[in-house]
Design a protein around this nucleic acid. Sequence first.
DNA 1: TCAAAAGTGTTCCTGTTACACCCATGT
DNA 2: ACATGGGTGTAACAGGAACACTTTTGA
Lengths: 236, 236
Amino acid sequence: MDMIDFLERGDEYFIPNLSIDLVIIGYRDKKLRCLLLKLGEKWMLPGGYIRRSESVDEASARIMKERTSLENPYLRFLSVFGKHDRQFREEWKEFFETNGQPWKPEYWINNRFVTLAYYSLVNIATTHPAVGELDEAFTWADFDELPAMWMDHATIIASVRERLKEDIKHEQVTYNLLPGQFTMPELHQLHQTILKEDIDRSRFQKKMLSTGLFERLPRLQKEAPGRNPYLYRVKG
Amino acid sequence: MDMIDFLERGDEYFIPNLSIDLVIIGYRDKKLRCLLLKLGEKWMLPGGYIRRSESVDEASARIMKERTSLENPYLRFLSVFGKHDRQFREEWKEFFETNGQPWKPEYWINNRFVTLAYYSLVNIATTHPAVGELDEAFTWADFDELPAMWMDHATIIASVRERLKEDIKHEQVTYNLLPGQFTMPELHQLHQTILKEDIDRSRFQKKMLSTGLFERLPRLQKEAPGRNPYLYRVKG
DNA sequence: TCAAAAGTGTTCCTGTTACACCCATGT
DNA sequence: ACATGGGTGTAACAGGAACACTTTTGA
């Protein structure tokens, strides 16, 4: 056992950069959507880095707040993306050159990154995205019709969609995607959009109400032809 | 938007070291056990670092193989441990000094670490742990009577136990902890140990067999008083 | 009074739970 | 034969799936 030897060959091991990417999920016009930022010709997920004073979870919450101003969003860890070739030299070079900016191979952003992906469920109507220093615009992109994405961000988005399907089997989280008051048909439609399959209305409603999570408000009046649905909100 | 500015304040962000820790779980004498390595006066989880050529998952598999010689173990990601004060200056200093080795504050192992914890389910009888360069011994420690642990490794172990409880509700993974041939009473006892609660024998057996994962071998002969149980193995 | 959309009820089926009972074997 | 421990069966119950029915309201 030679501890000094162990310590001095520390750089035999690569210390990858560590980033955080956020998949901020919303729902509008019967479509699941994802907040994307425009960087040059392609789009990317909002993200950032960890500061000295922060835990990893705190960093994700800060980045979330910087981007959306939301204080206590539904925010969960998704998974680690850490393939050995996960570095973006060519992507950055292309971007810099098309923008007439100098690019240097030694920029730290060219190194390999391991990223911790988080996902958040938000109500689009009350979320006001801020664009950052590099990105020019934002969009709530339809999950099923994503634009060209930088790096491996399309892969991350694909995996969050599968995770969502698993989540709603076990726990009630989807109301985070809706306004404070919503109807059962709306919640029903949302679940069908997430699962991409038809759900029996009767069973769905009974299942939702049996959780005891929701409370019924007076029935909506005169909004649409036919019988109008009750409004619900989350208890507490 | 000033990209140069963005690039040059890269070190405003801390780049934490990234490590991997393995919780290698076994089962012996009706107790769930965890492979620990002795380092000085306390114990720690086996772990390591990521190499340039490796994805994060490949690194965990390599470390697993280095420690146990197992080629295709059941190995899954647990979670990220990344609290802001997750650095082990004092721990390392104490260890070095009690071992009469020089300790320097600038050693890379003193910096903050974010660790990716993985867990693995193995059969203790066919797993032959190797001790590394620093550690002096190994043990299969009872989950419910852990020795003093370095750093936050006790926290990691606590969280893997909860994960296991969740896992066995959804999928059949526990046979990884048993020899290639096992009896239903053994599997039953194992599940009770993991869940820390009694499970109805009849229901348990029917549930296991209804998965279609197991095939029955000839009944065990003359091993113990009373009727002897059938042996099963995983199909395939 | 009919169509449209919401909401409720009925039946069938499956899987869970708790418990009773039957089988094999050593003492 | 009986105690011990493995293995199987059954009745009560809860939850899921499919579908039929009722309610509300505008045209």
